[in-house]
């Protein structure tokens, strides 16, 4: 995506503009505090001093980009992985919840979509509720599910993974239903003339032709699973994980900590999406479908 000719320069330009705007905002938002401090200590601040001070505050309103990266560097490379202050430790906890939820959501989504495609009653009755389930702000139930499951004796990963599952199964159901139905009538008829059984029809025609749709929806689903995992960490009272880091940061006014957790979450999200994208290319490449009709249809 990034390597395509003619895209890199515009992207870098826009990024540079965003960073520049960020620094202007840093000065603008953090300046009142500096002037306030200077007035209290009876010091005259020159403009240059003020600007450099705003970028080195301990609890800035908006931390500068380099401060955030410094914090990330300090809490990843310079800290032991086992330390509770290591962001790698927290990111790993969030990532394991994400992956567990993503796998469960993937299996649930695929099973549901197979049922929906093969059973008309299920199509008519379940599908509208699958869609409705997403119009419900499900994350609202997150604290509920966590507390209830804790009360029955489930704790640790599983309750959090349920929330990630809930968010990630939907795109997969929608994508897979579309994908499993993508073979056209001529292909279905051909399978009939071969006297193919229902399972042969499924494994030899429907399943392969749904692959481009599956991977496109997996990309959406993995990002959704991460959001679910982060939110699921909030009600457990800031114990561990990236969401917990954000909550703890907001309790104690540690803006740099919030931003660094946010950046790491973004990096994790990007990494996951890129990994699914690589798998996408690999599988479709092996199937000889790369840049074929299916991919384009599914991406559109």
């Amino acid at each position: 995506m990034m390597g395509k000719n003619g895209k890199l320069i515009p992207i870098l330009t826009v990024l540079a503009v965003i960073v520049a705007i960020w620094y202007v905002c840093v000065v603008w938002l953090n300046a009142p505090f500096e002037y306030d401090q200077a007035q209290r200590n009876d010091i005259e601040l020159t403009f240059g001093e003020m600007v450099s001070n705003t970028m080195a505050q301990k609890r800035p309103v908006l931390p500068a980009v380099h401060q955030v990266f410094e914090e990330i560097w300090n809490t990843t490379v310079l800290k032991k992985v086992t330390s509770k202050r290591s962001l790698i430790y927290h990111a790993w906890i969030t990532l394991s919840v994400t992956l567990l939820g993503f796998v469960m959501g993937g299996i649930l989504g695929i099973l549901l979509s197979v049922g929906i495609v093969h059973n008309k009653a299920m199509d008519k009755s379940v599908m509208p509720w699958v869609i409705t389930s997403q119009t419900i702000p499900i994350l609202a139930i997150a604290p509920m599910i966590i507390v209830v499951l804790n009360a029955i004796g489930f704790s640790g990963l599983i309750p959090k993974a349920f929330i990630a599952t809930y968010l990630s199964f939907f795109p997969i159901v929608v994508g897979m239903v579309k994908g499993l139905r993508s073979p056209d009538q001529a292909q279905l008829d051909l399978m009939r003339t071969y006297n193919a059984s229902k399972s042969q029809l499924f494994w030899k025609l429907r399943w392969p032709s749904s692959m481009p749709y599956l991977f496109t929806s997996l990309k959406v689903a993995v990002a959704a699973a991460l959001v679910g995992a982060i939110v699921a960490e909030l009600p457990t009272g800031a114990v561990a994980g990236l969401g917990a880091r954000m909550l703890a940061g907001s309790y104690y006014g540690q803006t740099i900590q919030i931003w660094s957790a946010l950046f790491v979450a973004a990096i994790v999200a990007a990494g996951l999406v890129i990994i699914v994208g690589i798998l996408h290319n690999y599988v479709l490449g092996r199937m000889g479908q790369l840049d074929g009709q299916g991919t384009r249809e599914a991406d559109a």
Binding site: V227, A261, A265
Partner: peptide, 8 residues
Amino acid sequence: ALPIIGVA
């Protein structure tokens, strides 16, 4: 695709 909810 990012967990924007984190800006909350």
